[in-house]
Design a protein around this nucleic acid. Structure first.
Length: 283
DNA sequence: CGTCTTTGACCCGCGC
DNA sequence: GCGCGGGTCAAAGACG
């Protein structure tokens, strides 16, 4: 995943070559086995990680801070990434925006599960959007300065737009939404391993009927586990055993699930449409 | 009973 | 200075 000039995520297409996942209308390789798909995605992840490294290396020459984001956890909203706050100038580099598509069943909930616990402290109807904006504070640590605003998109009421402000100053284990301790330790390890806390910038979540697939495109998490509700696919698959478990899990999830394909196509399509303009002014 | 959410009021910055 | 809009506070209610 590439960062734009503001340190935010943007399309890697221009620099890293086309990721088939992002293709405008990826032909469903139905003859391809799940394992082959997995291998292909892992390969793409490696390419993207390399591209990101190159971009970050170039970006470090400028003194601005990289925006970070909370980890994309599994929830009822599929996190997609963003390129938003302070697009033209960066006086407030800690501001970043995450777009998430909510499940229709949660159409009334203005809540975005992102791996942290939040306490709502306000709600406001803004002028340019008929949907109310909700204000949240990090509820894990009283001293944590992080805030977020969540508002539905005026264009698409299923699209949640969350704006994060500040940096978490605590360990991430703040949520009960983690599937299990193993995945939690992964998250913590991931956070400790990354230079700037957490970020969904490198993660694609595709939610289908409560099931989520997360593709960690740049981070190097250790092998993890998955629950009966979710499968987490990270960029580096280390052991054959893990891959087997992963493939089995994916197979269970996707078997007889034509809606997943539709959701996937929809999510990819949305994402491509969001990212193409952002990529246009990166280089 | 403690915690969390809701919601109206208040504060503050900004543009005119 | 005034009005507007965004952001925050805090009391009250809901909930487990």
């Amino acid at each position: 995943m590439a960062m734009d000039s503001n340190g935010e995520c943007s399309s890697p297409i221009a620099s890293a070559g086309l990721l088939p996942l992002f293709g405008p209308s990826p032909p469903p390789p139905q003859a391809e086995s799940l394992e082959e798909k997995l291998r292909r995605v892992s390969e793409e992840n490696r390419r993207l990680a390399a591209a990101l490294d190159a971009i970050l290396a170039a970006d470090r020459s400028t003194p601005r801070a990289l925006a970070t984001s909370p980890p994309a956890q599994q929830g009822n909203a599929a996190l997609t990434t963003q390129a938003a706050a302070g697009v033209t100038a960066e006086p407030r580099p800690r501001l970043r925006t995450v777009r998430a598509r909510a499940e229709p069943a949660d159409a009334d909930a203005n809540h975005l599960k992102d791996g942290y616990q939040w306490r709502k402290y306000g709600q406001k109807v803004t002028r340019d959007n008929p949907y109310p904006r909700a204000y949240f504070r990090c509820a894990y640590a009283p001293s944590c300065p992080v805030k977020k605003k969540v508002q539905r998109s005026a264009d698409d009421n299923l699209m949640l737009v969350a704006t994060y402000e500040g940096e978490h100053n605590h360990e991430q284990r703040a949520q009960s939404e983690y599937v299990n301790d193993a995945s939690t330790s992964q998250q913590q390890q991931h956070q400790a391993g990354s230079s700037s806390s957490s970020l969904p910038c490198s993660i694609i979540s595709i939610n289908s009927l409560g099931r989520t697939i997360t593709l960690g495109l740049a981070d190097q998490r250790p092998p993890g586990s998955s629950s009966n509700a979710e499968a987490v696919v990270v960029g580096e698959i280390v052991t054959p055993e893990f891959r087997k478990v992963l493939v089995d899990e994916l197979a269970n999830l996707l078997k007889n699930d034509s809606e997943f394909i539709e959701s996937l196509a929809s999510a990819v399509s949305d994402r491509v449409m969001e990212r193409i303009p952002a990529a246009g002014h990166i280089f």
